[in-house]
């Protein structure tokens, strides 16, 4: 059995002083991938994908709207996952990851709402309708704000980590309930005034452009989160020798 050896090599990166240089090496690659994929996705979206038969050119907002909405939901789940790992395994890095994810998730959540509003105006005639999806997205943004505000308001990092983890998990349990309740409420109040569910038949190139943009959003998120986590690690580990060495190298203009 070589499993202890293997788990050791994998868990090695759960230690901040191993993770820090790894993140520094990986982040530029993810950022480059994000840039290349964004350019490719935009080219597919604007120059290859045909004009939509019913919506005209406005539908091209989809290439950021849908990836942003996916990311915002997925990032919250990943945040809750790292929070659970942190509470169960007591690893500091998990909490750092969940807190590094939150601002990017909130940003994508806002982007999904903003682009949804701008897409909604020409297609439904209003910037905002109290549709189930839009409303859930708005509540998700509030959940992000709550998490960020709570972790920032607590000065003791140990308490901030754990309190944030609890609220992330409580939120994750509530997200399906919120979605269900909002949908229920929506069918009672809105009736059939807005039918988002009638998915227009999408051309393959449209779908492809959307997927490429979604992967680009992934790469962007990973790069930004790794960079943000690096700063947080330095801050948290400032009493250790290895951070001292990193800082000395930075002070001499070297590369970490």
């Amino acid at each position: 059995m070589n499993s202890p050896e293997r788990s050791r090599s994998l868990f090695r990166f759960a230690a901040p002083h191993n993770f820090y240089p790894l993140a520094g090496r990986l982040a530029p690659w993810f950022a480059t991938a994000a840039l290349v994929l964004t350019v490719a996705g935009l080219w597919l979206g604007f120059f290859v994908a045909p004009t939509d038969a019913t919506q005209g050119e406005v539908y091209r907002v989809i290439f950021i709207h849908v990836p942003a909405a996916w990311m915002s939901m997925f990032v919250y789940l990943v945040m809750a996952f790292w929070s659970a790992v942190g509470l169960v395994m007591n690893t500091r890095l998990s909490f750092i990851m969940s807190q590094a994810l939150a601002p990017t998730g909130a940003m994508f959540c806002f982007v999904a709402l903003w682009t949804g509003a701008l897409w909604g105006k020409p297609t439904w005639g209003a910037y905002w309708v109290w549709d189930a999806r839009l409303t859930s997205q708005l509540l998700l943004l509030f959940l992000y704000f709550g998490f960020i505000a709570l972790t920032r308001a607590i000065e003791d990092p140990r308490r901030a980590d754990r309190a944030g983890a609890i609220i992330a998990l409580v939120g994750a349990v509530n997200v399906p309930i919120i979605y269900f309740s909002v949908q229920w409420w929506n069918t009672l109040h809105q009736g059939a005034s807005v039918s988002l569910n009638k998915a227009p038949s999408m051309a393959t190139t449209m779908l492809l452009g959307m997927l490429v943009m979604a992967i680009a959003a992934w790469m962007y998120t990973i790069a930004v989160v790794l960079w943000r986590a690096r700063s947080m690690i330095l801050e948290r580990e400032r009493h250790t020798e290895w951070v001292g060495a990193v800082l000395e190298r930075e002070a001499q203009g070297g590369r970490a």
């Binding site: 509540l139 959940l143 709570l150 409580v170 939120g171 309930i177 919120i178 909002v182």
Partner: peptide, 8 residues
């Protein structure tokens, strides 16, 4: 923190 959770 709690108002979004109160919505349902």
């Amino acid at each position: 923190l709690v108002l979004p959770l109160f919505v349902p």
